[in-house]
């Protein structure tokens, strides 16, 4: 394999890693703080893509589309939390798996009714249709670079929010030790809703970014959901740092694996990685809870 292909694939891997990080940051916090398995996280990703595609068509602008779609996804996320998930915090994991699995069925069908069963196309944002020459002879799509940048910015922003603000500190404390936050006298309900809204926004944003390069279709949330679950398990439930490391790891393993390994083995590689990590570290790489 030549070097330029390796560089391009590594970039693709990092870019997939960014997507996975956006997905997993919210999910791992929800997992860690509310002890909730939310399989419907992928539906928010899908909805983000559909909303952005629709608003883009209406306004004719990608940026406007994203700007309108973002609050819409957050709103849906909050609605889900208030209507259903809030009732599931006290239930066992089995109930949570079932209820959120049912939500996937519901949202897939809803999208099929509202947008039709066929895939939806989302145009590349204005001015980012071309490629950029990174090194002599190595060209890379401008939009993918933009995703890398946007993902990086959001990741940094999230890092600042989680590590440097008071709310972020509460969230971190909650992910490591739920009871403690309750003991601090924080309005837990509000914190939960906030975290869930944040997670929904991040998942939706990932969907919006992915829209122009993947097809916007029913079920698009499921494949990334499973990758996301793998990421948070490898990273350690509740750990944002673990999610970041694992997301990049999985992104690169998956992408580079596809070039270097036979196809079947490549698709299996991340699951083998996960099984291996859990075999040696049953709590993931960065266990958040003490």
């Amino acid at each position: 394999m030549n070097a330029s292909l390796l560089i391009v694939q590594t970039l693709n891997g990092v870019q997939l890693g960014m997507m996975l990080f956006l997905m997993s940051a919210g999910l791992t916090l929800v997992f860690g703080i509310m002890n909730l398995i939310n399989l419907a996280h992928g539906s928010l990703y899908m909805l983000g893509a559909y909303f952005a595609a629709t608003f883009q068509k209406m306004t004719g602008s990608f940026l406007l589309g994203v700007a309108l779609a973002l609050p819409a996804v957050v709103l849906v996320g909050i609605l889900i939390e208030v209507a259903v998930l809030r009732r599931l915090y006290d239930h066992d994991h089995l109930d949570q798996v079932l209820a959120t699995f049912a939500m996937i069925l519901f949202f897939n069908e809803l999208v099929s009714i509202l947008w039709g069963p066929q895939a939806y196309f989302m145009a590349l944002p204005e001015g980012l249709g071309g490629t950029v020459e990174l090194l002599p002879g190595i060209r890379y799509p401008a939009y993918r670079l933009a995703i890398l940048a946007a993902g990086g910015v959001v990741a940094l922003g999230l890092w600042y929010f989680i590590m440097r603000t008071r709310v972020g500190m509460l969230i971190r404390a909650g992910a490591a030790n739920r009871e403690m936050v309750g003991a601090l006298g924080v309005n837990i309900r509000l914190l939960f809703t906030l975290v869930f809204g944040l997670g929904a926004g991040l998942a939706g944003f990932a969907g919006m970014m992915a829209g122009p390069i993947l097809s916007v279709e029913i079920g698009m949330g499921e494949s990334i959901l499973i990758l996301t679950l793998v990421v948070i398990i490898i990273g350690g439930i509740g750990s944002v740092r673990g999610a970041f490391v694992a997301a990049i790891l999985i992104g690169i393993t998956d992408t580079v694996g596809r070039v270097m390994l036979p196809p079947a083995l490549a698709s299996m590689s991340i699951y083998i990685l996960m099984a291996a990590v859990l075999f040696w570290r049953p709590q993931g790489l960065f266990p958040a809870a003490t």
Partner: peptide, 13 residues
């Protein structure tokens, strides 16, 4: 499925 989903959620709850 639009009916099955909410129905399942009710069963769980």
């Amino acid at each position: 499925m639009i009916f099955l989903g909410p129905l399942l959620i009710l069963v769980v709850l």
